[in-house]
Design a protein around this nucleic acid. Structure first.
Lengths: 136, 136
DNA sequence: CGGTATCCGAAATGATACTG
DNA sequence: CAGTATCATTTCGGATACCG
């Protein structure tokens, strides 16, 4: 997953340099990243402030939102703008690159909304089977 | 990420029951899941044996492949067939559900292959900036 | 307001050894 | 061959406290 530091690239390259998918999933697979992108995409091309973003992401801690946004900014997916007022106001928006990621991500969301019930059902069956075997 | 046990659903539901995307990313975001799906999709509708699968996934340990496949089977994305020979031969293939997931996943892979260089570049810039500030 | 630093528990992954 | 069990390591994420 790796949200915080990003120096583990060298290790990954050792056994599979040609797998950008894994690198991408390391990013969007973190707990809050895809949700942040979704909210930012919903606001695009407008900007959102830190506190607003946090309000739209129930359960996220201040630290994790900060860490998530920092990594997105570092990856060039999100742009950060600071108003030098006191207190400062910080605005976030998706870059063009970030927006282009929204398309395949939205497709994945659509699949999830359409099929997660089937996955849940499969898990229920598997759970029931495990219980059955305990009765046997 | 959660590949092994799957009882943490209750906790997630507490703050966001309507987010199947997170649940899906909890699954495909694990280190080996998406790679396994990719290999299985490349072989579909045929089957692949455990050892073959492992050979096509450089770096995966026997344990992690086993854990990954078990979770995919439990989720109904992969079907498992055992030949009762000695030694036994176990075959894996994507279910229809798993195959349907391949489509949005392939879109994500395409995006990754097309744009990861830009992400790397953004990271290089960010890295350089951090170095610059140390010179300042 | 918008962070950062630190500590801690939980979870993922890997190495190794053993089994049917 | 295809696992499972156990142990050790790494990383993630949350809580808390402090800063400009």
């Amino acid at each position: 997953m790796r949200v915080t530091t990003r120096p583990a690239r060298a290790k990954g390259d050792l056994f599979d340099p040609a797998c950008p998918t894994r690198q991408l999933l390391d990013r969007i697979g973190t707990k809050w990243t895809s949700m942040a992108i979704k909210v930012l995409a919903g606001t695009a091309p407008g900007e959102v402030r830190f506190a607003d973003l946090r309000r739209q992401m129930p359960g996220v801690s201040q630290k994790m939102l900060s860490v998530t946004l920092r990594s997105l900014v570092q990856d060039g997916l999100v742009a950060r703008r600071v108003e030098p007022t006191v207190p400062p106001r910080v605005h976030y928006r998706l870059t063009d690159l970030g927006l282009s990621l929204e398309t395949p991500l939205a497709a994945l969301r659509a699949w999830a909304e359409e099929h997660m019930a089937e996955i849940d059902h499969a898990n229920a069956i598997a759970r029931a089977g495990a219980v059955d075997s305990e009765f046997g």
